[in-house]
Amino acid sequence: MSVIHSAVNDVPLDKIPALVFPALVETLIMVGIVMVIVIVVGVPLGALVHNLAPGGLIENRAAHSTVSWVVSIGRSLPFLILMASIMPFTRLITGTNIGIAAAVVPMSLAGVAFFTRIVENSLRSVPPSLVRVARASGASKLQVVRTAQLSEAVPQILGGLTINTIAMIEYSAIAGTIGAGGIGYVAVTYGYQRFDNTVMLVTIVILVVTVALVQLLGDAAVRLTTPYARRSSKRMRRAAPVSSEPVLAA
């Protein structure tokens, strides 16, 4: 019965692409802009927090606590609350409270806070002996950060970046409610509020596929930047036909 009932208000099948594809493009633009900001700000910030910590290159207890505390605030607010609470700030920067521009501000804040911790955590996994090696080889502090910390942590950072990107796709749906548009917004307004099961289903499929694609890309990037994984997967591929020979013979 509900199918017949809702079918009255449903978007006709042939109109769905026109509804969904611009929304997907909006999501990609939103998340794309945010991720650029997240990387540009989050990587240096993460490296800064890591090196202000005890044992870091520019150890400073007071500065470390301050920066760490600010990042933690950004991490602890639920995104919807963060978005609502910084409205004045958003308006100050973008001159508006609605649309993609307005969504990018809170998403970037949340994303940067998230990514700062990811970068910090990734750098912590690099053996500290490498920092000593770099310094003993005559590296400046910036060179140490670039070669002995960030470069060695690239696979971990890329893995974290994948998680972060997916979280931002999720946030974009929430940001959609302030008129930023996007695929999440279509799912909420058409699928959820208007009981349009078809649109709901289509958006779910698109979101699942998008997230899966991001994950696949991320995994591939991690593999490509890890010499060990890269070589061993090549070896496995080379070994594969050899191991299948007896099967073919049989």
Binding site: V133, S151, E152, V154, P155, T225, T226
Partner: peptide, 12 residues
Amino acid sequence: GTIFQSDGLFSR
């Protein structure tokens, strides 16, 4: 010049 215990190489 310093030679470290064998783990001083950059893995990437």
